[in-house]
Amino acid sequence: MARREDIALTSRLSPFQRIYLLLIAGFIVGPFLPLIIQSLAFRWAWPDLMPGTWWMQQRGKSAIPLAWDYVLSPYSHIWEAAINTVAIGTTVTAICLVICLPAARVLARERFRGKGAFEFFLSLPLIVPEAAIGMALLMIFIRLGLAGSFFGIVIAHLIPTIPYMVRMLTAVYQGLGKDFEEQAMILGARPMQILFRVTLPMLLPGVVAGALFTFLVSTNIFLLTFFLGQGKIITLPTLLFAKISGGTLDASAAGITLVVTLPGIVLLLITERFIKEEAFGKGFGN
């Protein structure tokens, strides 16, 4: 009996959990190893576990790895895709913030009839299949002349990003409370002053977290960009799709995959500092 309690209460890992953590880590990052090798290989025939010829052995032909030479050249369109991805992500984030801030404030502080239904409506875009939204929007966008335009992609990206943004901002406002704003008001501050001198500075960490997350979601969107971009606007996910849609992966595709992974790693390093798990959990509480 006493032993059982020990096991149940321990805060240390069980042997199974130790192995499990290793296995999951291997599952998640392990596949990147052959990807890196592939991008540096010159010739890598089956069934060799390591490339038969590395690029170093062919240095006479190219100063940098051949695949990378291509990936970083204008022919691969990777710079164009990267710039598009960042530009779309930034614009989407900015618009999303402007739209969601007022709504989140009301949702966090006021009680009104139909609030539950409204919150459910706000999370609907997350549970309606993206293919359905994408194709239906495509028909509308073609008629409005928005298909294949930067602006069209941006407004399409708003649909899956708004639900996350509004949830995160609502959690931020809930944590903030009304007191400070009320005190500023009592001391005679005007609404604009309250907004810029009191509310926004206190909201900032949460707003940054929400913005980062929105940017992240936007940069990862494939389907909406692919359907609505009509091949005219390429982003990193759609570029990679075009490269691997045949179901094979050559050295340059491996290089592109690694480049497409890069913004994610950067965002991971940043967001881990800003987005607290607890805040994220609030969005999932109900």
Binding site: I28, P237, L249, L268
Partner: peptide, 19 residues
């Protein structure tokens, strides 16, 4: 480490599956 897949597009996962 474990959050890495959250940060990158599905297409990267597909490339990894292929390789």
């Amino acid at each position: 480490l474990y959050k890495l897949p959250l940060m990158i597009p599905y297409t990267v996962g597909i490339a990894l599956a292929v390789i």
